[in-house]
Structure formats: structure tokens, C-alpha cells
């Protein structure tokens, strides 16, 4: 029972990070109707920038959020301006392939610069844990989960209360009506891509605290991001939070009670099941 509780709570903590990691994908899809395959590139870049800052200057990962979030925004907005925007009138698959290309380039550059060896980032608190009654929790998981939740609250506030956030939602819901109201749709697109990428890169930063640093990081977590976004309802902020937590819990339970090797299979199965159910819904 104690094990179960520990695993459950730990799964919830990781799940909030999953939700945070995935939200950018949903946001970009909602506003631009583009599936951002470069999401994996931004996740990986976040991990590497954080690792490098820690390795070279000893900067704490949480401090490097101040670097990776703005950097992600800038890079994302630049990718939108230079690549995605130019293809706005071509078939969706063109954009898909192009963004996939961006990811491949980033991945290969990382291989070239850092090599293929797994690295890890160890801080003074990496191995600390906290005993709360019968439950033992890892400190990095608590910290990272708290930051993710904070990020979610900030995002919800921006989307609900600021002019920029309202404009973003307007473009997502009816782009033509947004243009008629004088909202500069192309600027909103760049902003949305920037925010989505900032979320991905800062998620990479947070996750570098307990995942190994490798150029394949993005591949592993892009699939999970898809899973969360599809399950949570693409742009629904609450749904994505619930879906992320659900996946985190399911993975941790699987790893603990079945086999650690099955952890990464869960997201795949859930994704397939969710897509099949959508299909059935749509037909029935």
C-alpha cells in the first residue's frame, strides 16, 4: 500500500511535467493548425542548453529557465516567420515535412557537437528525497512539478486575461473573424509558435533534472507529447493537464508493477487507443 501511494504520487508529479511538455504542441496546433514536429527539437535543445550551462558555468537548471524560455520563444517565432509562414498556403504535409527536417537537423548537429553518449546533469539536490508520512518523494520531481503547475497557471492567466491571450484564442477559434476585428493574424501566429516553443524548451530544462541527456531525448518525448495532446483534447488546457497526469500515473504503475521496460510502451498504447476511440466516436 505504501509502495502504491509513493508510485501514485510520483506519477502525478511526473504527469504535470508531461502536461507542461505537451501543451506547446496543442497550442501551436490550435492556433496555426500545424503539427509541430520540431517540438522534439525544442525539447532536446532545452535539455542540451541546460546541461551545457550547468557543465560549463555551473548554472542551476532552474536558473537556466531564464535562458531557455526566452530563447525558445525567439527560435520558435523565427522558425514560424522564416519557414512555416511561407508555406501557409501549401498542403499541410509540406509543413509537416519541413518541421521534421528542422528536427533532424537539430538532432544531427547535437550528435556532431556532443556525440552520442548519454550524459546526466547532477545537482546538489538531484538525489535528495522527502519523506511525507508513508510516502517518499524525490525532490527534483517535486520541484519540477511545482514549476510546471506554475507555468500552467501563468499560461491560463495569459490566455484568459491579456489582450495577447484573447487574440490567440480568437485566431484559434475563427481566424477570419479575428482578421475582421483588426487582429494581426500573422503576428499572432508567430507569437503562438514562439510560446509553444518556449514551453517545449523550458520543459526540456525541467526534465533535464531527471532524464538523461541524449540527442534522442526529443524522439522519446515527442511521442508522449502527442499522446497527452490527443488524449487531452488538443487545445483544452484542463484536459491536457488531466491527460498528462493520467499518463504519468499509468507509466509509473506499469514500471513498478509490471516491468520498467514497459514504461515507454504505455504512451504508445494509449495513443493508439485514443485515436481508435476518436475514430469510433466520429463514426458513431
Amino acid at each position: 500500500m505504501t509502495d502504491f501511494l509513493s508510485v501514485l504520487v510520483s506519477g502525478v508529479l511526473v504527469g504535470t511535467v508531461y502536461a507542461y511538455m505537451a501543451y506547446g504542441l496543442g497550442l501551436i496546433y490550435g492556433v496555426l493548425r500545424v503539427v509541430n514536429l520540431a517540438h522534439g527539437a525544442f525539447l532536446t535543445l532545452g535539455v542540451y542548453v541546460t546541461w551545457w550551462l550547468h557543465f560549463t558555468f555551473g548554472i542551476d537548471p532552474l536558473v537556466s529557465l531564464l535562458v531557455t524560455a526566452p530563447l525558445g520563444f525567439g527560435l520558435g517565432a523565427a522558425v514560424e516567420r522564416t519557414l512555416v509562414f511561407r508555406l501557409r498556403d501549401s498542403p499541410p504535409v509540406t509543413t509537416l515535412l519541413l518541421l521534421f527536417g528542422v528536427w533532424l537537423i537539430v538532432r544531427n548537429v547535437l550528435y556532431l557537437v556532443f556525440g552520442g553518449t548519454d550524459r546526466s546533469l547532477l545537482t546538489s539536490y538531484s538525489l535528495e528525497s522527502l519523506a511525507l508520512g508513508p510516502v517518499t518523494l524525490s525532490i527534483p520531481r517535486i520541484v519540477v512539478s511545482a514549476f510546471s503547475l506554475l507555468g500552467f497557471v501563468a499560461l491560463a492567466f495569459v490566455l484568459k486575461r491579456t489582450w495577447a491571450g484573447l487574440a490567440l484564442r480568437a485566431v484559434a477559434q475563427d481566424r477570419g473573424a479575428a482578421a475582421l476585428s483588426g487582429i494581426p493574424v500573422d503576428r499572432v501566429w508567430a507569437t503562438a509558435f514562439g510560446i509553444g516553443s518556449a514551453l517545449a524548451m523550458s520543459a526540456g530544462t525541467l526534465m533535464s533534472l531527471f532524464y538523461s541527456v541524449t540527442p534522442e531525448f526529443g524522439a522519446r518525448f515527442l511521442l508522449k507529447s502527442f499522446c497527452v495532446v490527443v488524449l487531452g483534447g488538443l487545445t483544452n488546457i484542463g484536459g491536457i493537464l488531466v491527460a498528462g497526469i493520467g499518463l504519468g500515473v499509468a507509466e509509473d504503475l506499469t514500471a513498478f508493477y509490471i516491468h520498467t521496460g514497459f514504461r515507454d510502451v504505455v504512451s504508445f498504447l494509449v495513443l493508439v487507443a485514443a485515436l481508435v476511440m476518436r475514430r469510433v466516436d466520429a463514426e458513431g
Partner: peptide, 14 residues
Amino acid sequence: RVWPEMTVMENLRL
């Protein structure tokens, strides 16, 4: 063409 998933007030504001 109102924005369906925003409140009436948000539609007006925007």
C-alpha cells in the same frame, strides 16, 4: 462568426 468558445463578454472586449 462570433468566437464560439469565448464568452459574450470576451467577444465584445476583443
